[in-house]
Amino acid sequence: MLKFYKILFLNILFLSTLIVISSYSWFSMWMGLEINLLSILPLMTNPKNLYPSEAAMKYFITQTLASLILLFSILLSMNTQEFIPQNSSNMLILMINSSLFLKAGAAPFHAWFPEVMEGLNWENCLLMMTWQKIAPMMILIHNLNMFLYLSWIILISTILGGIYGLNQISLRKILAYSSINHIAWMLASMLYFKMIWLLYFIVYSILIINLIIIFRYFNIFYINQLNLIFNSNKLLNFFFMMNFLSLGGLPPFLGFLPKWLTIMNLIYNQFYSLTLVLIIFTLITLFYYVRLTFSSFLLTKIELSIKLTSLNNFWFFFLNFISLAGLLIYAMLPNFF
């Protein structure tokens, strides 16, 4: 049951992101980011557990540092009588972009993100992986000038997101490193055609919501807790497997559509090496997704005689239907082009 103060701060959180999106000046964007930071901290805290308080402290320190760098860059640009981004120096753009990458959790500014995720419950993890990415990404869309710097951020994010997720047993850390890898794809998708980023973000959010509904309902946090639940429910087992394969971008699932559009956009603009690295390290993320769902692929497996509680939720089945409807979307696409 949600308490009144949590509903209040959740509404402020949503409004602060809308302030950032609709702002015309750098100071109002910075103000929206600060309101966003101060509104999510009460949502993280839990009087029954110390780990969310520790995660909230780590999040506050890193986000405050990013906000200070952003504010310093804005003041510096105003004192030097330069406008951002048209007439400013590369150093100011680099500082602003770095602060936004730190806020979004992109590598190599990612170290706080898995540690904060590990201390949160699933509802806050959902906010961290989806809603909290919108504000810095929207500012980045209007400030994409240094393509070489952005390319290095994309490369480092996809490499670290792929490799660091291999040796994790915590589902929250696996999803955190997966999110870092997807940040690389989102940054790549906004290079020339911004609508691909919007499509990518919507599809990614749907898939993450599907998975977190399952994890939250059964109170699952580690890999060794999966077998007990999914050996008792074939439909849930099927949805779980399909969502992870879709999250990895395996065709013909819905998660492949934004990756496909991103790849076409990058190749059209001659980013061949960047595309190759993105594809290779996404296959590594797909490997540890398959490792999670490996028991689902087995033809013979142990089934429990005890019937556990089933997940009967309309929105869960509705979102999974949308996710699996990727097959129909691909079948219909040639009729429109």
Score class of each variant (00 low, 15 high):
residue 301 K to H: 09
residue 39 S to W: 05
residue 310 S to V: 12
residue 97 N to R: 06
residue 203 V to Q: 02
residue 106 A to W: 01
residue 158 T to E: 03
residue 102 L to H: 00
residue 318 F to H: 06
residue 149 Y to A: 08
residue 38 L to V: 11
residue 277 V to Y: 00
residue 242 M to C: 12
residue 231 N to F: 09
residue 203 V to W: 01
residue 35 I to V: 09
residue 28 S to P: 07
residue 229 I to L: 10
residue 336 F to W: 05
residue 302 I to N: 13
residue 22 S to E: 10
residue 206 I to W: 02
residue 68 L to T: 13
residue 216 R to I: 11
residue 289 Y to W: 01
residue 314 F to P: 12
residue 213 I to N: 14
residue 223 I to H: 10
residue 190 M to P: 04
residue 223 I to K: 13
residue 241 M to R: 11
residue 54 E to P: 05
residue 216 R to P: 10
residue 304 L to W: 13
residue 335 N to M: 12
residue 308 L to I: 14
residue 207 L to F: 06
residue 246 S to E: 00
residue 288 Y to I: 00
residue 121 N to E: 12
residue 5 Y to W: 10
residue 12 I to G: 01
residue 125 C to V: 12
residue 122 W to M: 04
residue 48 K to I: 09
residue 148 L to E: 15
residue 90 N to K: 13
residue 34 E to G: 02
residue 10 L to S: 14
residue 66 A to S: 13
residue 189 S to Y: 04
residue 30 W to I: 05
residue 245 L to F: 08
residue 158 T to I: 15
residue 35 I to W: 06
residue 272 Y to M: 07
residue 50 L to P: 11
residue 27 F to I: 15
residue 95 M to S: 14
residue 311 L to V: 03
residue 186 M to F: 08
residue 66 A to W: 02
residue 142 H to A: 11
residue 243 N to G: 00
residue 7 I to V: 15
residue 228 L to I: 13
residue 52 P to Y: 02
residue 307 K to T: 15
residue 310 S to Q: 15
residue 225 Q to D: 09
residue 215 F to Q: 06
residue 14 F to R: 05
residue 269 N to P: 01
residue 274 L to K: 00
residue 194 K to Y: 12
residue 236 L to Q: 03
residue 303 E to S: 14
residue 97 N to L: 05
residue 12 I to S: 05
residue 235 L to N: 15
residue 102 L to R: 01
residue 83 F to Y: 12
residue 276 L to V: 04
residue 83 F to N: 15
residue 305 S to H: 12
residue 201 F to M: 07
residue 117 M to P: 07
residue 299 L to T: 15
residue 8 L to I: 15
residue 231 N to Y: 10
residue 279 I to H: 02
residue 120 L to P: 07
residue 188 A to R: 02
residue 101 F to M: 06
residue 274 L to E: 00
residue 265 N to F: 05
residue 194 K to V: 12
residue 208 I to L: 15
residue 104 A to P: 05
residue 22 S to I: 08
residue 73 S to Y: 04
residue 272 Y to A: 01
residue 255 G to Y: 00
residue 179 S to E: 09
residue 277 V to T: 03
residue 272 Y to K: 03
residue 331 A to K: 06
residue 126 L to C: 09
residue 274 L to W: 01
residue 22 S to M: 12
residue 124 N to D: 10
residue 10 L to C: 12
residue 261 L to D: 01
residue 176 A to G: 09
residue 318 F to G: 04
residue 46 N to W: 02
residue 202 I to N: 09
residue 5 Y to H: 11
residue 14 F to I: 15
residue 91 M to G: 08
residue 62 T to C: 13
residue 162 G to A: 05
residue 279 I to W: 00
residue 89 S to V: 08
residue 62 T to G: 10
residue 143 N to I: 13
residue 127 L to S: 07
residue 322 I to F: 03
residue 38 L to A: 09
residue 113 F to K: 04
residue 122 W to P: 04
residue 49 N to T: 07
residue 25 S to C: 08
residue 24 Y to H: 14
residue 272 Y to I: 09
residue 190 M to I: 08
residue 337 F to A: 06
residue 294 F to M: 13
residue 240 F to G: 04
residue 165 G to D: 09
residue 247 L to S: 00
residue 167 N to R: 14
residue 28 S to Y: 15
residue 65 L to N: 07
residue 103 K to S: 04
residue 333 L to H: 01
residue 277 V to W: 00
residue 305 S to T: 15
residue 37 L to Q: 01
residue 22 S to A: 11
residue 58 K to A: 04
residue 82 E to N: 11
